[in-house]
Simulated assay, not measured.
Amino acid sequence: MARFVVVLPLSPLTVGDEFTVAQWPLHVTLVEPFETELDADVLGTALAAVAGSPGARAITVAVGDDAMFGPRRDILVSLVRDGGAIAALRTAAISALRGLGIDLVRMRQDFRPHVTAKRHGRVDRGDRLQLGSLALVRLRPPETSHHGRIVGSWPLGEGNTGGG
């Protein structure tokens, strides 16, 4: 089983980029980590169709208040004000993945779009963000999310139908 996560990066990501948890590029998580035996090409085809669908487009959002996330409430995040576009894209991505037979057992019912503050950067209240692409990240090793590799990246709303 491989683990993946779907994100909306603040800056475009390149297929093949790798990073540790400390180096994770700033992003909004669109679909929480999930496991599947399907390979990245199959996932990529489904997600490219979501990114290139007629309703998909670059999303401009404003950064709101800070909050503390995590089991111990010790992870600083900046909440993102979603006018509905992130939620709609999330629904489409979840539907596409479930259509492949993937059991998305860790989906949060109380999903709150946010950007986690990192040592290398963060966003601040009032910032305006342009979320222009969707990326598929392979998490390694399978039992953790400490390392990631970009295995697919697609601009939003440009009629994509192929892999990234």
Rank of each mutant, 00 (worst) to 15 (best):
T45E: 14
T91S: 15
P113Y: 01
P113D: 04
V77A: 10
H146A: 11
G148P: 00
D103V: 13
L76D: 10
A87Y: 09
S133D: 03
V42F: 06
D17C: 11
L10G: 05
G159S: 04
A46S: 12
R3Q: 07
G83Q: 09
R72I: 09
L43T: 04
R72M: 14
V31L: 04
G126E: 04
D41G: 14
G159H: 02
R73F: 05
L13T: 01
R140Q: 10
V15D: 02
R112Y: 07
P33I: 03
S153I: 01
V61E: 00
D41N: 14
F4T: 02
G16F: 04
V50E: 00
K118D: 07
R140S: 12
T91F: 08
I150H: 03
G55M: 11
L129R: 00
I75F: 09
S95L: 11
A88M: 07
H114P: 04
F34H: 06
G99R: 09
V63A: 12
S78Q: 12
T29D: 06
P12T: 09
D110Y: 07
G44R: 02
T14M: 12
G83F: 05
V123S: 00
L136R: 02
R72K: 15
S145Y: 11
A51R: 07
S53V: 08
P155N: 07
G84V: 01
R90N: 05
V5G: 05
G52P: 12
D17L: 15
R57W: 03
F111A: 06
A62I: 06
R81G: 12
A58L: 04
